[in-house]
Design a protein around this nucleic acid. Sequence first.
DNA 1: ATAGGGTTAG
Length: 525
Amino acid sequence: MLAHSIKRSSCYSFNSILRTLLKSGNFEKALHHFVQFRDQGFLPDNYTIPSLLKLLHDLHQPLHYRENIHSFAIKNGYLKDIFVTTGFVEMYFSFGCVASSRQLFDETPIKDVVLWTAMVSGFSHNGSGDLAVNFFSQMVGEGVKPNRITLTSVLAACSQLMVPNLGRSVHGFSIRNGIFSSDVLLETAFVDMEMIYENLREPESSILASLLQVCGGTSDLRHGREIHGHVTRSCRNMNSYMMVENNALIDMYAKAGDLNSAVLLFENVKNKNLVTWTTMISGYGMHGLGTEAAEAFNAMKKTGIIPDGVTFIALLSACSHGRLVDEGLQLYISMQRDYKIEPDMKHFACMVDIYARSGLLDQAFSFIKKMPVEPSEFIWASLLSSCRTYKNVVLGEQAAIKALAFNQYNTRVYILLSQLYADSGQWEDFSKVRLVMKDLGLKPTTAQSWVEVERKIYIFTVRDNMNPYSEKMYKLLETLTETMHKEGFVAYRSSGCHDITKEEKEHYKKSWIKRPVIFGWKSPY
DNA sequence: ATAGGGTTAG
């Protein structure tokens, strides 16, 4: 009895100290403290576990260690404590293990606002904005009242999904329920531009930045330029926060395809900070200008600005788009050796892409296998994409299986895999994939693109015949193709689902009858 | 009475 109470009180003070050390960022001391505690024969209690998970996160420890803590927590019945459950939910989300988080959530009988919020933000961070919004409405439906943190998370998901109306209704909801968040500004960003001119008040930098983000993302140069004009007119040049507007404008021009304007503005900006440089590097990169990106990086270093993790993401992705394998590897090494930056999932994804886009699929795969953390769904899907380009069915299948283990409903993965099969003439496998999609209720989506000409937006798709200019456009394409041939270029022609010959169609119809019941591949693991 | 969810212009 006495021993028990001593242990309990020791746990109490241990937990307090651990928490304090973590808060002040003394991770090494915190680890030392934990090791001492453990060596004295004490075991973590339910109060310790959330802190312990945070410690392992801060020390970049692999998933494996945390799974041990998960087993430990299960054995001791600590998952009855919602604080512990929430910790694990958050931890699995951070490793991209969405299914594990979801399972934990489902197994929790009584869910509070924090657990619900962890789900909303977890989905949002893993690129599932739709599920984030879905869980938010479930939560409201079950009578759990969201707070400002929940709203911040769900609004982030709304803006990710580009659904301003949903954002507006969330905003309306928060007003009706008396919940206010400074981040509802995010939603305001979607309010129509003309409204800004009618508004007496000067729009916040953050609103302008969000609007520019939308302009960049939709290649809406016209609105982007209008905002630029607005910023220039609104005598805020003397203010320091002009930095935010300029950086957002440079990014917008680069993303909307007008690299010249981006460079022009960049060169005219007097005080460039790390974000300005990184934006320009990333702009060059997305236009395939690896050399210019590298030059900008060198120029930045000369000014004494120290790059951070995001700068290296921009550089590595420039290498991947410019097929610069050796340069990418050198940067990846230098980042860790010279700047002490720990690579995270995004850097890993860039490295995989650098190898894979250059056709070095085996090197991409061995890089994945050597990663210290569980590769994300995105990494597998991007490997699959390159497997399709280079027609590597064996590796492509493995990548697809891995990606689908994260999310069974990833339409893009099925499409890529079926195209890979089609390109390789494996029509039976092609139809198998399409049937699995059909069983799951997934529809192949046709990619759309659009262009704005004289205030009118023209949307078009592959083999589009609906456009009144279709005939003219295809004639022009023919001329272009001819010119390319004359110049010595050979067009790569995909034999994807649009290009099925008569025999292949017959074959496809036949195999349609043989409905596979389950997903027909075995995991290589 | 010690713990869990969000936050950046790139």
